[in-house]
């Protein structure tokens, strides 16, 4: 399957362009979003990416013909490269002292030191922004560190918490409720509220495609 478009109610379409969220899916998603941003169908309110899907929301009654859109977007997918190169390279200092660090180590059958070593020796890629403002799903987590989310989410997770949820790792940009395993914290701000007020995309510290490394530190400099 190259691409399939399902209706999502009368005014939205869900474009499914891959079956699993791998590097090829990411490349397709980027190509589709770029295309839709530069050639928006009339009445398009917004386009949003998932791992394998793109949601197109339209003004009431302005949803375009599915078959026509399918033909157009299929061409975009066909021409998408197998992979897109990394965006910016970022390093985030991390103090590995999270409350779930031991749990992650126990589930993996590793020592805490090995968990830190594994988590900080990978270059991750931002594959998805979503869930809450600026929350970036990072791909590339060592399989041994894949850890199920908590059965009951915490009502409040501190901003800057470095966490593992299933096969992804992430940093909580703000203090929010959260169900991921907290393994550490960074002091690099990933949501700039002053820029949120002026409505700038620069409010978000991480962008799709960024390459991210976690650097273990004992404490932060400032």
């Amino acid at each position: 399957m190259l691409l399939r478009i399902d209706t999502f109610g009368p005014d939205a379409l869900l474009v499914r362009y891959a079956s699993k969220g791998d590097a090829a899916a990411f490349s397709r998603g980027q190509a589709l979003l770029t295309h839709v941003d530069s050639h928006p169908p009339a009445g398009l309110i917004e386009a949003t990416l998932g791992f394998t899907t793109m949601l197109l929301e339209f003004e009431t009654g302005q949803c375009p013909d599915r078959a026509l859109l399918e033909v157009m977007l299929e061409g975009v997918v066909r021409e998408a490269p197998a992979e897109v190169g990394p965006g910016r390279s970022l390093e985030l200092p991390v103090v590995y002292d999270g409350p779930d660090l031991k749990r992650v180590a126990e589930i993996a059958g590793l020592s805490v030191g090995q968990v830190i070593e594994l988590h900080s020796s990978t270059e991750y890629r931002v594959r998805l922004l979503g869930f809450s403002p600026g929350f970036a799903y990072l791909d590339g987590l060592d399989q041994r560190l894949h850890t199920p989310k908590l059965a009951t989410p915490r009502p409040q997770v501190p901003a800057g918490s470095v966490a593992i949820g299933g096969e992804h790792t992430a940093v909580y940009p703000a203090a929010t409720p959260g169900g991921w395993n907290l393994i550490g914290r960074t002091d690099t701000p990933l949501l700039d509220v002053a820029r949120a007020v002026v409505g700038s995309r620069e409010a978000f510290g991480l962008r799709l495609g960024d390459a991210v490394r976690f650097v273990p530190v004992d404490r932060f400099h400032s």
Partner: peptide
């Protein structure tokens, strides 16, 4: 795999009790 959610989406988590996403709900 996480996909974008619209307000009004009726999601069914593993416990089988539906959640209707409201306007401050997670985007995916």
């Amino acid at each position: 795999p996480s996909e974008p959610v619209l307000p009004g989406s009726i999601q069914v988590p593993p416990d089988g009790r539906p959640i209707i996403t409201m306007r401050d709900g997670p985007t995916v």
